[in-house]
Write a protein that binds this DNA or RNA. Structure first.
Lengths: 127, 127
DNA sequence: CCACCTGTTATACAAATAATATAACAGGTG
DNA sequence: CACCTGTTATATTATTTGTATAACAGGTGG
């Protein structure tokens, strides 16, 4: 998978890395059971420090996207607990929608944005 | 408006403050043209430093939620540029929905969450 | 004019976070 | 035994966060 880091971004490198891997899972570029590159390998590829990658993997592990197999390394393993997933999304959605309402975006505006993004992500499923 | 800061949160104080004021605007507890408490007043009320409040106001100003009237202070003044609003929401929505898709949440799940939050926020409009 | 209210700015300081660097360790593989 | 994993330990630098004290310019009302 192609990973690109914006070194001028406000967002921390390890956070960008997390988000891109999650995006990779969503677009089926990473499948359940697939092995991620080793922390040293990925750090070299991107041109960052090993510990920055390690932090990203640690966060992904805590959030239930990855498990560590002593033999192979970091393996995609998504936690499908719907309760927890909804709780997490709900919290972020609240602040996001507050901003949207302030700007006079209707719920229909949001619905179509959601559909457009879902369509875009699901295009990758048949590949 | 009642503002509550969680001092044990990961989220920065000034960021929580921004979010709560935006939430206040969304739920019509702050109306366009209304004056926010002065930085010193609000800092005293919450029990934090003046500069922390000032940073929150500065961010809100840059993001187009507030303008500063030399006579009165910080005044609610929402920028309704729909293009910019959608661009901002879209960016955040992308990372949020990537996580949702990973967890097997359908677009219908998201739609109903959006509706529920919109319903909740709009309850406050008639008050 | 003068006290008093705004936000703003300038420093300074402590604490936490982010990123880097070097090095070592334990577990597993071939 | 060499080699690959993630992990841990230390150290250093830079940035961010929050606090603290102080001053300044613009505007208001007595």
């Amino acid at each position: 998978m192609l990973i690109h880091i914006d070194f001028n971004s406000e967002e921390a490198i390890y956070q960008q890395l997390c988000n891109q891997i999650i995006l990779g899972i969503a677009t089926c570029q990473f499948a359940d059971g697939q092995v991620l590159p080793s922390v040293r390998q990925l750090a070299d590829d991107i041109g960052i420090n090993m510990h920055t990658v390690n932090k990203a993997y640690t966060v992904l592990k805590q959030e239930g996207f990855v498990k560590v197999d002593r033999r192979r390394g970091a393996v995609i393993s998504v936690d499908y607990d719907k309760q927890r997933a909804e709780a997490g999304v709900d919290k972020e959605l609240r602040t996001l929608l507050a901003e949207a309402i302030c700007r006079n975006l209707t719920r229909e505006d949001i619905h179509s944005m959601v559909d457009r993004i879902y369509d875009e992500y699901e295009r990758y499923i048949d590949s």
